[in-house]
Design a protein around this nucleic acid. Sequence first.
DNA 1: CGGAAGATTGAGAGTTCTCAATGCCTGTGG
DNA 2: CCACAGGCATTGAGAACTCTCAATCTTCCG
Lengths: 237, 237
Amino acid sequence: MSNPLLRKLEALADLSTEDRQLVDSICTDVHDFHARQDIIREKERLDHVHLMLSGWASRYQIMAHGKKQITAILLPGDFCDTLIALLGEMDHSIGANMTCRVAFVSKDTMLALFDRPAIARALWWASLVDEGIMRAWLVNLGARDGLPRTAHLLCELHARLTAIGMADGDFFTVPLTQEQLGQALSLTAVHVNRILRQLRDRGMVRFERNRVSIVNEIALRALCNYNPSYLHLNDKR
Amino acid sequence: MSNPLLRKLEALADLSTEDRQLVDSICTDVHDFHARQDIIREKERLDHVHLMLSGWASRYQIMAHGKKQITAILLPGDFCDTLIALLGEMDHSIGANMTCRVAFVSKDTMLALFDRPAIARALWWASLVDEGIMRAWLVNLGARDGLPRTAHLLCELHARLTAIGMADGDFFTVPLTQEQLGQALSLTAVHVNRILRQLRDRGMVRFERNRVSIVNEIALRALCNYNPSYLHLNDKR
DNA sequence: CGGAAGATTGAGAGTTCTCAATGCCTGTGG
DNA sequence: CCACAGGCATTGAGAACTCTCAATCTTCCG
């Protein structure tokens, strides 16, 4: 399995051979986490950045009354905390949704990456994409009803998983329970269930266990007006 | 009126005299915008970054069916688009909510700022805060009902305005209509109105015209479990 | 003074939630 | 190999929150 970060950065910039070697060499301190385990907890202070190598994780925050809101889904190649880990104190937690392999990358290594212009450029692009995803989620929660909101999340996941080679055409795996999907979409598990049934009834998506298949992507995208430009896929400039 | 960026950065790092002079000198290309005018439009490509000098502006996105979602409120000292302007194409617009003065800062000037370690550090902190605000909005939309959600926004605005000297104790001005508040909170203007009445009836906030006064900040913060740590105020490290 | 934008209020409708019951699947232990 | 427990999915029904539509009122400004 090749380094997922390398793959991602290569899509964003032209890297030299040395750049590639450097990126490939940063995953020396690797840790495994199992489902439901926290990778980082609120209020922690860190001296390294977390890079997802495999598995799924979620950035989340728990409210006083126990309600949990997932604010991001982290996939292989994603940094969990570029800025926060280096500067501040975590104001939220990150939990593994399934077995995850995570590289702990030291500050110095990160700085070495930023010293290479092509790598730095690609890393900025990646941050820009992360920022765009967050804004897209904000709009999704704020401006779409449950059905199109869920459709939008599925479109995004399909696009992101495809980009990192984790989708098999229209099929992919979502290791989240309906409860967890609800925490990301700000819906109850019961309502997520009804929405998934609607998507199935309309012949757009099949959801069985953790396997998703997009049956009619055109219709699904139309349902939520999906515009993937915020992911800047194939946007090497 | 001193440079609001300087004020902000000084709260985040210890700047040398040269640093101060540099920051103070970047506002050479200043433009004024009037209420309802767009500062940046979706799909624009820019060669400079926008720095708010005075006034209020909103980052927003318009859905196909016309619904508008405000994803950020920009105040003096805020950069509108650190990354996007330099790398990509705007995937949303930024509109002035009142008369605004905006400095156009060139790429080169930005790079010069990042060459100064203390300034760069403060700028990273500022990005971290912006990121934290976005996450807080995501949680606010996703996990709070209208009443606490509105309370949270008011608490945040009060804190941010106080930090930049634009609040007069418990009084401040919010140059947004109830319609616009609704676009930020993802509520209809009608419902915002009812919520503001509730906040008034409960003796927490008075809202008259564009003047807001926080009558009982303790109760208001309790209502939404406000925890301002994500703003990293007084967090100079 | 008139017009327009914004604020306020009422009433009925729609979306989503809560509570609760039932069904399904998987892994474990006998 | 089967029974059982536990987690998850599914469905129903009534409640809660928020929206839509519509009317009225207020304020601002030319």
